[in-house]
Design a protein around this nucleic acid. Structure first.
Lengths: 144, 144
DNA sequence: CATATTTCAGCGTTACTGAAATGT
DNA sequence: CACATTTCAGTAGCGCTGAAATAT
């Protein structure tokens, strides 16, 4: 896992670099969230719910970027943990309406603090200004 | 897959951004290499061999960042394709000496051109100067 | 005997596909 | 009937573990 051993061709290649950093951040974030008993995908779901209010699972899938079939499974767990509620939409009974519970909202705020520390951890080599520049550049690549 | 739908919490989070860009670049690079009949890991092996000369599979694993057991499988294919040679090390008969063939070296140069286009493709929103800055920042995160 | 290398068999996770069941 | 949503079963890829076989 020591990227410094890699050949120059790879060390200078954007796709390789971004893949290595993604793997690093995935480990760090995954570890801290696992200590909280949650999964990265579940944080994405809670965050999407907080911002976009009660929504169907289909929209939750669009917002979070998770596959619809995976949303089913993660929502199962979050519902069992009491962090969100799943009720049939009276206006369109194909849909589930997913909404954060009070506990879910509180949990999300806890996770925000934990995740902020995780970000700082793997971005340690960068100054705050550099971190901002990195975020801006990555956002540009995604068209944000 | 439209990252622009994601909540602000995610769109501002370095680990999420880098994961999205990594997924994007992985698709783009994977597709162009698949069209060439090769895998991303195999390019990493060819590149490592070109820079570090004939080496054992163990060192190839260290250099490429691939697991030793995966090196076995990818080298199997590359050997069958005639891009590298696998011979027993006379000095230490536990080791295989892996060396690029002439065809392998030629193939690597082809792939370099193809990959350069793939990088340019997903980095399209960035200016050349911005691409350089992104590469530099990602390298810093990895301690390169 | 302890260690190193190659190889193989298999596992856990993740992202995804395809289709059934239900409803509009 | 065509289409949308939820759900489930299953697949492919990938990184990894553990151990056998071989050699130092």
């Amino acid at each position: 896992m020591d990227s410094a051993n890699a050949p120059e061709r790879l060390r200078a290649m954007p796709s390789w670099l971004v893949g290595q950093v993604a793997a690093l951040s995935r480990r760090v974030v995954g570890d801290v969230l696992e200590a909280e008993g949650l999964h990265r995908s579940q944080y994405a779901l809670l965050a999407s719910l907080e911002e976009f209010g009660p929504v169907s699972q289909a929209e939750l899938s669009d917002r979070s970027g998770l596959d619809r079939s995976d949303v089913v499974r993660w929502v199962d767990e979050l519902e069992a943990a009491g962090l969100l509620g799943r009720t049939r939409d009276p206006g369109d009974r194909r849909r589930n309406v997913i909404a954060l519970t009070v506990a879910g909202r509180r949990r999300l705020r806890q996770l925000d603090a934990v995740l902020a520390r995780a970000q700082a951890s793997f971005l340690d080599p960068l100054t705050p200004a550099e971190r901002d520049r990195l975020v801006a550049l990555l956002g540009r690549v995604l068209g944000l």
